[in-house]
Design a protein around this nucleic acid. Structure first.
Lengths: 329, 329
DNA sequence: CTGAAAGCGCTAACAC
DNA sequence: GTGTTAGCGCTTTCAG
């Protein structure tokens, strides 16, 4: 910047002001300085700017991976979400810093916040302790979490209506005359717990009895899920429908069923959750509960910027929509 | 940091050294200081650190979007690539800054470099002028591009063997007895031009004549591509096979064919490129040329770090593999 | 082994 | 309007 100042025959402050578009500097001089900077390929150093301004123009997007799988972000839902967030954040002139963290290491959230590399944070998923988020939220405002709403929650969460989604799924399956409806997926994470709760309510409303033998804890990754489902099938419980925690699990279930010689939807009707791109293109295409990611990402970013501006933005629960495709009818 | 120093009864320099694990500070004192910092939730401010060290511990991943579509990163290939890169970069203790840029605005690359927000840059795709990349590469070393190798190229590029891929695709289709093989996709971008060139060579080697009427410029986005293909079908040229620039285009072609009442692979055999996740799950599953993204991302990151260390890492062309699935046989 | 002090590149009072 | 100057929070000579 000193160089530019020398070339323009002005002081550093004038250059700084001109480059910032400060109207105190006459328009002609400003343009002149901007032009000099441009031709010399000068751009303001962001580290210095951030240090001085205590503002980075960066939004952190945190992907907490459960367990110490030091591995792949391959989950299609996660990737779609990241894509949407990048779009939405870029529209506002901010860059996106993606953090992949192992959610089991304590203090990771505090570390990210304290490093002050981002002006705001979006966490994808609550795999963290609810309590840890609450604790952080008391002192750190610019944070939005993709996830479920929980009682006593003091952080800002955006997410689909998991409970209603579970209900709708089971109502749909029961309406088709299915009576032995299995649930595939973990039930610990808040989102999962709510979908599971919706499943149980759906059963109750349809006059079906809940059978714990039809609940299979299935991994979230496609490969492992397929094996988990295969084991479940082999272990013998009879079932004529599946409500899966996610589309990925539903797709894995379809594969495992095919390998076990059962047809879908003939022998077993399958419903997933999320409506990822893969859901539409499968054979059969997947009946699922659609979460509008574009809208979800938009909402999260919107709330985040309001919180960054000091407002106190509320949590939002987005509706989910049952999309009926070939895997259930 | 001053606070921590006061609490520990030492100077700021000592705290800085202790937190950096500098062995000049006795281990006990070091641990003590680290402990104080931990309990008080202190973490080094990265802006200040970066300013001082001229090093950010961030790798920039740039997604250049062609044209001024101020829109969505929805391309599955791009998303998978980003996921792989994040994994690979995170493994090395760096964070990832994702930039979405409109490649038509001149000077964007210089701006990103000069802002010094990242220690190195990975560009996904050469949609930029080859010349612009060459110019930048002369002065900016830590940059790796995902794309084709071009004559006179002075930047480091990693990518699949597009030409060979095109040849293999056509050889496969011709081997199945197909004689009117269409090419769907743009032919301007370097990757596309090479795949197209492979297509022409494949035709020649199979003794088929090249018919310009069978080359359809098709958009890269799923929706638009479907419409483009539908128009092509409606316009009447007879064809019994398609080599598509990408899996996304191939999937769009499958849809358009179905809507037009033509069967695949019966009436038209279809081959894509990339082997994205969607390819495997379609109906029919897609024959495609697999680019090993995991390996590609690994290679790019590896070369980038070598360049960051001052070494002069070479460009790499990765093999592609024909994966035969139901869409062609 | 430890501390004092300089300075990374920038912005914004505060003078003039 | 413009320049001078004081930091932002950190690391690292350099001196002790």
């Amino acid at each position: 910047m000193a160089d530019i100042a020398r070339m323009a025959g002005v002081s550093i402050s004038t250059v700084s002001r001109a480059l910032a578009g400060n109207p105190l500097i006459p328009k002609t001089l400003r343009d002149q300085i901007v032009e000099i900077a441009r031709t010399h390929g000068y751009v303001v150093n962001q580290s210095a700017r951030s240090l001085r301004l205590r503002k980075t123009d960066i939004i952190g997007v945190v992907i907490p991976l459960p367990h110490q799988t030091g591995r792949l972000i391959s989950d299609p839902f996660l990737l779609e979400m990241v894509g949407r967030l990048v779009d939405e954040i870029a529209r506002r002139g901010y860059a996106v810093l993606v953090h992949k963290v192992i959610a089991t290491e304590p203090g990771w959230l505090e570390r990210i916040i304290q490093s002050q590399r981002a002006d705001g944070l979006i966490l994808i998923g609550q795999s963290v302790e609810h309590a840890a988020l609450n604790a952080v939220a008391d002192t750190y405002r610019p944070m939005v979490v993709w996830g479920a709403q929980l009682p006593g929650q003091r952080y800002c969460a955006v997410g689909g209506d998991h409970l209603e989604g579970g209900r709708l799924a089971v109502a749909h399956l029961a309406g088709l005359g299915r009576e032995r409806i299995a649930f595939f997926g973990a039930t610990e994470a808040p989102e999962a717990a709510q979908r599971f709760e919706g499943y149980r309510r759906g059963l109750a409303e349809a006059g079906l009895t809940f059978d714990p033998a039809l609940v299979a804890p299935v991994s979230h990754s496609l490969q492992e899920a397929r094996d988990d489902v295969a084991r479940f099938i082999a272990s013998g419980p009879s079932f004529d429908a599946v409500f899966a925690f996610s589309d990925v699990i539903a797709l894995a279930a379809l594969e495992a069923l095919r390998e076990a010689g059962r047809s879908a939807p003939g022998d077993v009707a399958v419903v997933g959750f999320d409506d990822i791109m893969l859901a539409r293109y499968g054979a059969p295409p997947l009946t699922t509960l659609r979460q509008d990611l574009e809208h979800g990402a938009q909402t999260m970013v919107d709330l985040l910027f309001r919180r960054m501006a000091g407002e106190d933005a509320p949590s939002v629960m987005a509706p989910v929509e049952l999309i009926v495709r070939g895997s259930s009818v």
